[in-house]
Structure formats: C-alpha cells, structure tokens
Design a protein around this nucleic acid. Structure first.
Length: 501
RNA sequence: GGUCCUGUGGCCGAGUGGCUAGGCAGAGCUCUGCAAAAGCUUCCACAGCGGUUCGAAUCCGCUCGGGACCUCCA
C-alpha cells in the first residue's frame, strides 16, 4: 500500500517516493518569534508532526527541519513607548535577542504542551546570516538580483522570462501568472528601489532605528524574509529534498520566492512535494491581527479570552485539529472544542482499559463477523493515512471500535468473541495510532501515587458505605469529589473507577 | 478587480456516482439505591435552480453565500 499525498505543485495526489530511501527530508516553515504563538500556529505544526510521525512509523529515516525566524523587522508590542521613556538604562532597552528568546521559549513550551515532537534540526535565521549572504551573492552573480540603496532585490521579471522557457515560471506553485500580478499590486514602501513591483527583497538596508542589523557587502541590514528558508533547507536537506510544508497562506509569495531563489542558486526545484495545511477560522474568519480575533495559546489553555467559555487542554486542541483533514478549513468554536474534549476522553478511556487487559480473546472466537469487522476497521487505519493523511477517518474508525471495547468491558460482548490474534492486532495498532502517530495523550498521564492512594481510600470508604446502604455518605463522597473535578464511576463489576479533569 | 478554494443535519466534521462516516448535543430504552459512565435504538443533511446519468452530496452550468492569497504580513 502506497502513501499518497496531495502535492500543491501538481494539484493532485501523488504517490510519495523519497529521493533517497530510506531517508526522507522535510522542511517546514517555522514561527516568527516576535510575538506569542496563537491558535493558528497549532495547525501546521500538528499536521506536520503527524506526517513526521507517520513517515517514521512507515520505516523511513526522517530528518525534519523546522526553522525559527528570529531575524527581521521586530518590535515588541507595548515596549516601544516604554523604551522612549527610559533610554538611559541599558537593561530597560529592548534587546532583540531577549525578545526572540522569550518567544522562542514560549513557542517550545506550547509545542511540548501539544505533544509535538521536536524537529530533528531547528535552525535559526540569525544563526545563518552567512549562508544567506552567500546565497544572495550567488544570485547577484547569476544576474537575477540587483542592489539598490543598500538593499538587494530579486529580479522576478527576468527569472520569469528565463524560467518560463524551462517550464518553471514564477507562480508555478500558486498558479499565478506574473503578468496578471503587476496590475493589481498596491503601493508599498520603497517601491522606487525596485525595478519592478513584483521584485522581492533578498537583503534589506536597516534604517537607524532598526534593532536587528548585520554587516553585509551591501551595508548594514537584515536578510529578506524568504531567503532564510532557502538557505537553511538547502544546507540541511540538500539542493533537492522530499517535502516542503507550511500553511496555505505561505504558498504565495513566500514559497514561490523560495522556489525562485533556490532554483537560481542550485539549479533545481528545491522540493518535490509541497504540502499546505488549510487555515483555522474563527466564526468563519481567518485568525489575524487585523481581524482582532487572535487567541494566544496561553489564553486558549487557560480559558482567559472573551471568545472562550472555558479552558481547553492542549490534548483537546490537538484532537480537535486531527478530527479534520489537514487540507480542509477548520472552524473553531466552543461547541466543537467541547465535543472534542468529551470524545477524546471516551476514546482514551476505552483505549486505556483495553491496554490493561491480558485475558481477552480466544483461540476459538465465537463471533466471526465481529472479528472480521474489527480486523477491517484496524486495517483501514493505514489505508486512510495513505490517502493524504486522513486523520479524520482514522479517528472515525477508532470511534467505531470504542463501543466494541466498552461492550467487552461491560460484558455485552463475550471475552471470547474475538480471537486472541485480533485482540493483539487491535491493541498493537491502537497503540501505534493513538499514541505514536496521532500523538494523543492519556488522561491519566499526570498521575501520582499519593493521589491515587488517597482516592483509593475514598473509594473504599464509599464502597463500604454503599454496602450498608448508607447513601448519604456514599453520595457525599461522590458529589464532593465531583466538585473537585474527580468523577467516580460505578462499574458493572462493582468496582469504582475515576477520571480527573 | 485577479487567482484559487468552498457551501453537508442544532454544532464540528468524513465523504471514491449507487450500500444514509464519525464526534458532540437532543429523544427513548437497558444497567443503576439515585446519578454519572457505558451500551442499544432513534430524530435531524447534503445552499438554490437547471443539466448529464438507469442512478448525484459526489460530474457540468448558472445563481446566491462563505473563505484564502494578491509581494515584507508571519
């Protein structure tokens, strides 16, 4: 069974074949750490985390490179006014690296909360100024860039003319035609420096007040926004690599520019597969500063935001995102998140119960059709993932297995209904998919022994109270624990289990 | 205005032309001291209008609605 992914470049699903198996190189555009990560950042990093995990599961040796954009035109909100007041004290002045460090730390914290694996390499733009300058020099030498007032611009017109002849016009990825673009481009600063409006900056001259600046052959400045990804992807993955990913909003112009720069430099289309995740919307609108609807991750996890009726756990957010296919728009809302919260809990509880059992299944199963059904549902996990990473369908199948598991637990289905082989397969694949690939975490992962001991004590007291029909006491224990966020559940076998919010 | 995507039941979402994904919510039932949990059953769909087809949520056209991008904004 072959993995197919949708390639934005060809606009169709294609069989994924690595350039140099068993190695796979993935580059994903990382965050700009001039501000706090928000809900919109979760989608690409969860999407490509799952891709990374799935490729690993398939046996590939994956190098996952995700950059940190820490160079550019940075200003911290609220800091500017303050700086003007106390310019004398060095410590009170805005130190660029301080800003960048702060938000990098926050980003890493959020990624680990969401259970995203760390990338194999996480290069920073500031750590690759030299590589970027070298690349720009090369592009100038090849005649595809020019200097203007201490800035360097890429000559899109020339590139388009020359490379259209090679069937790789500017706009090949996003389906744009350069001639159509020029007309509709609106006025921007420094347009006079450019030969054509469609040209983009490789290097920007830094105005005096700019906080980040490096020495270059063209004077003090900072790299253009697109060049870092070209420089770092080719450095760590080669001139041609397997997959380049990112949000749909980056397709144009960012990825288009990357293609142009890298192709001029390395004479190759940098990536063979371009994958783009769709956006998260809030009430149908893309999240963004201009819409005034940004929910920061700290706000999302704490519930401290006017649009939120409650806090949402990182695992809930991850699950919510994985319940849709990555190329679909996903509309965010309290109802949807609450549905995910409950669904995830039900799924995890069934899974955790199953994994703790050792005596389910029989060498002589009594229900062949159920056996077949389970085997089929499990086999489809791979099928769905191979069809452009359809996590939504995988999760739907898991939910079809949940009632089967719970029915075995509640003895509505006999323990020997399924074969031992089927049960073993089910356990193995659920473990692979829920934990290893989807990266979902159990609700009880933050247990500690002392708390468990205390709860067990209360559970025993409640059992005794129930035994002598002292329902006042048993209800008091149940209700007060519930108020604290601990829910007791009377199981069919007389045992009492619990979940903690 | 240009390019592209999209419109599925109360909400979120899958959907390869024929066999009503799934989750949450609602209703009923079973279990239960009561509840919760769990299980079973069930209600509610394919924006509108045409067309192709034996048959369309799925293909085509039109209308209406929504979204993304349009070069420094990450």
């Amino acid at each position: 069974m072959l993995l197919k992914v949708y390639n934005s470049l060809t606009r169709k699903k294609e069989v994924f074949v690595p350039l140099n198996p068993p190695y796979v190189g993935i580059y994903v555009c990382g965050p700009t750490v001039s501000g706090e990560s928000h809900l919109g950042h979760t989608r690409p990093y969860i999407t490509f985390d799952v891709l990374f995990r799935y490729l690993t599961y398939l046996g590939y040796k994956v190098r996952y490179v995700r950059n940190i954009t820490d160079a550019g035109h940075f200003e911290e909100e609220g800091r500017e006014a303050e700086d003007k007041i106390s310019t004398k004290a060095t410590l009170e002045k805005l130190e660029p690296m301080e800003l960048v460090q702060k938000y990098t730390n926050l980003f890493h914290w959020a990624m680990s909360q969401l259970n995203n694996l760390a990338p194999s390499i996480e290069p920073t733009a500031t750590g690759h100024i030299v590589e970027q300058i070298e690349m720009i020099k090369k592009i100038i030498a090849d005649g595809y860039a020019y200097e203007s007032n201490g800035s360097v611009y890429f000559d899109v017109e020339k590139y388009n003319t020359d490379y259209s002849a090679k069937n790789q016009p500017y706009g090949i990825l996003s389906g744009r035609v350069l001639e159509d673009q020029v007309e509709s481009t609106r006025a921007l600063d420094n347009q006079a420096e450019k030969h054509n409006k469609s040209d983009f900056a490789l290097w920007k001259n830094a105005p005096p007040e700019h906080i980040m600046r490096w020495q270059s052959p063209w004077g003090e400045g900072f790299p253009g926004w697109h060049i870092e990804c070209s420089a770092m992807s080719s450095k760590y993955l080669g001139d041609e690599f397997d997959i380049h990913g990112g949000g749909m909003d980056l397709q144009f112009p960012h990825h288009e520019c990357e293609i142009a720069q890298s192709t001029v430099c390395n004479h190759k289309m940098p990536a063979r597969f371009w994958m783009h995740n769709n956006m998260i919307t809030i009430n149908g609108k893309k999240m963004g500063k201009s819409y005034n609807n940004v929910i920061k991750l700290t706000e999302l996890f704490s519930g401290n935001h006017p649009l939120l009726t409650q806090a949402y756990a990182p695992s809930t957010v991850r699950f919510f995102i994985l319940q849709s296919q990555y190329r679909s728009q996903l509309d965010f809302g309290n109802e949807g998140l609450q549905a995910s919260e409950k669904g995830l809990r039900r799924m995890m509880e069934a899974f955790e119960w199953l994994m703790a059992q050792n005596n389910i299944g029989s060498s002589e199963p009594t229900d062949d059709s159920l056996n077949e059904k389970v085997v089929k549902l499990v086999a489809e996990f791979d099928e769905f993932m191979n069809d452009d990473i359809n996590t939504a369908k995988v999760i739907a199948n898991i939910f079809e297995l949940v009632p089967i598991i719970n029915s075995i637990k509640d003895k509505h289905i006999a323990v020997h209904a399924l074969s031992t082989d089927t049960v073993a397969l089910l356990k193995k694949q659920l473990q692979h998919y829920i934990i290893d690939i989807l990266g979902l975490q159990g609700s009880k992962s933050n247990h500690n022994n002392k708390l468990e001991g205390v709860l067990q004590l209360l559970i025993n007291i409640r059992k005794e109270a129930k035994g002598r029909k002292d329902f006042v006491t048993s209800d008091k224990i149940r209700n007060e624990l519930l108020a604290l966020g601990v829910q007791l559940k009377d199981e069919k076998d007389g045992e009492i289990s619990y979940t903690i919010d």
